[in-house]
């Protein structure tokens, strides 16, 4: 049996492909691109939430937020490590990120403008991310699937903390309730955009479904997210800003309106509210750290010579 047929059989039988197994070039490239974009998203995602660490309104909230942003750095690390099992190099992927040649989740190109945004990002953005990511725990590539299991557990924790912050704020003052509603109004549509364009316009879906890299279509996941979120919003006491949102008993799902896809493509294309700022921040951190990484490498090399193990 040839290698390609064996690979196809492994994938079709829902078995895992491991780093040393043969795989088609297209599969390898698609995976590196997808996992790297996910890793970049974790790292860029540190910025909008990190924006509020210094101003967190209680010490407990400061600890929770700092721990969350730290988890995101950790997720980035696991995911870059997963790309390295496919022959990619973290340094090269970082170069691609800061030169704009590889993308990250567009949601992080929206600004965080109040502390309620910290809660809403946990609830809606992490919630949407979980909907996207839970199926990836069964994705065909072993190291990616295993990283995703750990990430999903931690993301669930973050989602719950975000929701708990919002619950607390809703039980506070009128100003806090208004702050939560205003934040939900700003983040609802961008959260729906996180599932990607409608299936009819999504270029990568079909092959990725066949390879079991992707397991559900964009529209299926978006529906799941809306159905999951509506009762949570009710419990919270906020209104989701979509006049078309209503339960459809025939479908057994909620009907809902479409996000502004022109805005989506603008943000994806680099013209979002903070695209340039996010990349410049990442580039500055990377460039400012160059002398530190060089020093660590030089020290390690000297040390190896001194120990006689060079």
């Amino acid at each position: 049996m040839d290698l390609e047929a064996q690979f196809e059989r492994t994938v079709a039988a829902e078995q895992r492909v491991e780093p040393r197994d043969w795989m088609p070039d297209g599969y390898r490239k698609t995976l590196i691109r997808q996992i790297a974009q996910h890793a970049h998203s974790e790292i860029i995602g540190m910025q909008p939430e990190g924006n509020w660490i210094s101003r967190a309104p209680s010490l407990r909230r400061k600890a929770i937020l700092l721990a969350k942003v730290q988890d995101e750095a950790g997720h980035g690390l696991y995911l870059y490590a997963a790309t390295e099992t496919l022959g990619a190099d973290r340094g090269e992927l970082t170069e691609k990120l800061i030169s704009g040649r590889q993308k990250y989740s567009s949601i992080f190109n929206y600004p965080t403008l109040s502390y309620a945004d910290v809660g809403v990002i946990g609830w809606l953005v992490d919630g949407a991310a979980i909907c996207n990511q839970v199926p990836l725990c069964r994705t065909s590539y072993g190291p990616y699937a295993r990283a995703m299991i750990r990430i999903c557990k931690e993301e669930s924790f973050h989602q719950r903390q975000g929701y708990e912050l919002l619950m607390t704020m809703m039980s506070g003052t009128d100003a806090q309730r208004a702050m939560v509603q205003e934040s939900v109004n700003r983040w609802w549509w961008p959260s729906l955009m996180m599932f990607g364009p409608p299936d009819a316009e999504s270029s990568n879906t079909e092959q990725s479904m066949k390879w079991r890299i992707k397991r559900n279509t964009n529209d299926e996941l978006r529906q799941k997210f809306v159905d999951m979120t509506v009762p949570q919003a009710r419990k919270l006491g906020v209104t989701l800003p979509d006049p078309e949102l209503r339960w459809n008993p025939e479908r057994g799902h909620h009907d809902f309106g479409q996000p502004d896809w022109d805005e989506f493509w603008q943000v994806v294309g680099g013209n979002g509210p903070t695209n340039a700022q996010r990349i410049a921040h990442r580039r500055k951190a990377h460039e400012d750290g160059e002398w530190v990484r060089a020093a660590a490498a030089a020290h390690a090399a000297k040390h190896a010579v001194r120990e006689g193990v060079a």
């Binding site: 790292i43 990190g50 210094s54 950790g74 870059y80 500055k284 400012d288 530190v292």
Partner: peptide, 16 residues
Amino acid sequence: EWCSRAPELEEDVALA
């Protein structure tokens, strides 16, 4: 203040 500004991801985790 170092969060998201460290020279390496490992150092972001450590400083946090």
